[in-house]
């Protein structure tokens, strides 16, 4: 009886393929999100993908000209060598934030976010799709930034593994922040306010441009509670082998922050904050 009510392969009589079966993880769906996010990034930004690299190039040029003969070393490194990792990680991390935040808000406003949230994807898969694509995008931004800074003293990574660790985990943390911001923002105005007034100052004032030693005492200790500072510090260690603060501490802070970010992101996607009614 029951069988006749649901003639098994519904589409078969119409010449349609049967539903795709998968076990565990919907790999194809995950790959589709990643491809869609990365391609979307390229289509949306086009030439502006090189914007952060150009900005870093301008920063380095004006500092190079302004410094002139004044020889300065920071933490034992020539100033521009000290500066380059800060500019690279700031550019990569900021675009990791933008990549998820812009995409989520855009689709929310266009009403197309249902295409993703309605697809047979678990919250973990959706989150993974956003995070992995943000990591790819942040590398897409960081690599040209590194290339333009190379003439100014950005060398090859000294500790590639540390570099990789801080690059990927930094992108992960910032993309969860971007996800939360995109889900929370009702319109572009609020998103750009958060980016301009909170994210950019935090990224640029957390030790990219100066060493811990330049800070007076209450601020020096306070800086150690700033995860972005540890991100910059760790990334700089990866590039130059020189760390401003104990590298173990930075790795620990970023590791813990990444786990917390993952849990928070999983929670947000799970409840569909401001997306599922």
């Amino acid at each position: 009886m029951a069988r006749t009510e649901h003639p098994v392969p519904q589409g078969a009589s119409l010449g349609l393929a049967p539903p795709r079966r998968y076990r565990g993880v919907n790999w194809r769906g995950l790959a589709a999100i990643i491809r869609r996010q990365v391609v979307g990034e390229i289509m949306f930004f086009r030439l502006a993908i090189f914007g952060p690299a150009l900005q870093a190039l301008l920063f380095a040029s004006v500092i190079w000209i302004a410094l002139g003969e004044a020889v300065t070393t920071v933490a034992g490194l020539p100033f521009l060598t000290f500066l380059a990792p800060g500019l690279i990680i700031a550019a990569g991390a900021q675009r990791a934030f933008e990549s998820t935040a812009f995409s989520v808000l855009h689709e929310k406003l266009e009403g197309t976010i249902g295409d993703l949230w309605g697809a047979p994807l678990s919250p973990g898969e959706i989150l993974a799709g956003y995070l992995i694509s943000a990591m790819i995008v942040s590398v897409m931004i960081a690599a040209p930034t590194w290339a333009v800074l190379a003439p100014f003293g950005a060398g090859l990574p000294d500790r590639p593994l540390a570099l990789l660790f801080f690059m990927t985990f930094g992108a992960l943390i910032l993309s969860v922040v971007g996800l939360a911001t995109g889900m929370h923002s009702p319109k572009w105005d609020s998103l750009s306010a958060i980016e301009t007034f909170a994210i950019a100052p935090l990224l640029f004032l957390s030790g990219s441009f100066f060493s811990l030693a330049a800070l007076a005492e209450p601020f020096r200790s306070l800086m150690l509670f700033n995860p972005i500072f540890h991100l910059v510090n760790g990334f700089r260690f990866g590039m130059t082998g020189v760390a401003d603060a104990p590298i173990g501490l930075s790795a620990l802070v970023i590791g813990v922050a990444a786990v917390l970010a993952l849990a928070f992101g999983r929670y947000l996607v799970g409840i569909g904050y401001k997306i599922k009614a």
């Binding site: 410094l67 004044a70 300065t72 100033f79 100052p201 640029f204 004032l205 100066f210 330049a214």
Partner: peptide
């Protein structure tokens, strides 16, 4: 922010 960045970056050398 630019004022802060460039003062921090260059203020002591220049």
């Amino acid at each position: 922010l630019f004022l802060a960045i460039f003062t921090l970056a260059l203020g002591r050398a220049v």
